[in-house]
């Protein structure tokens, strides 16, 4: 699928244009937002952002995996994984956007 890739810089640019803050401050704020979300998740607290979606944590137990190259069996340690559930608003906007193209 063709398309550009946006990065932190593009999000900061949107803050510059739409809120009118200086570029370096906008960059700091974008970073801060991502950091607050990461920090909350690292503490095991889910993050719910209305009209965007929610980030949740799921605990995975130990299971047996296999090294795909050697075929060797290796244990996969229990771990916490992040799951993102998009909101219906986000899903609708993405489907409408693609229908127009």
């Amino acid at each position: 699928m063709a398309g550009k890739t946006l990065t932190r810089a593009d999000l900061a640019e949107a803050v510059v244009e739409k809120v009118g803050l200086p570029r370096n401050e906008s960059q700091d704020l974008v970073e801060r937002v991502l950091d607050e979300i990461s920090g909350s998740l690292a503490e095991g607290d889910a993050v719910k952002l209305s009209s965007f979606g929610s980030f949740g944590i799921r605990q995975k137990g130990e299971r047996v995996g296999r090294n795909p190259k050697t075929g060797e069996e290796v244990p996969i340690t229990p771990r916490r994984v992040l799951v993102f559930r998009p909101s219906n608003i986000m899903k609708d906007r993405i489907n409408k956007g693609h229908a127009k193209r």
């Binding site: 699928m1 063709a2 398309g3 550009k4 890739t5 946006l6 990065t7 593009d10 999000l11 986000m90 906007r93 993405i94 409408k96 956007g97 693609h98 193209r101």
Partner: peptide
Amino acid sequence: ALSRGDRV
């Protein structure tokens, strides 16, 4: 961005 088909 996602509705335009871009990735982030």
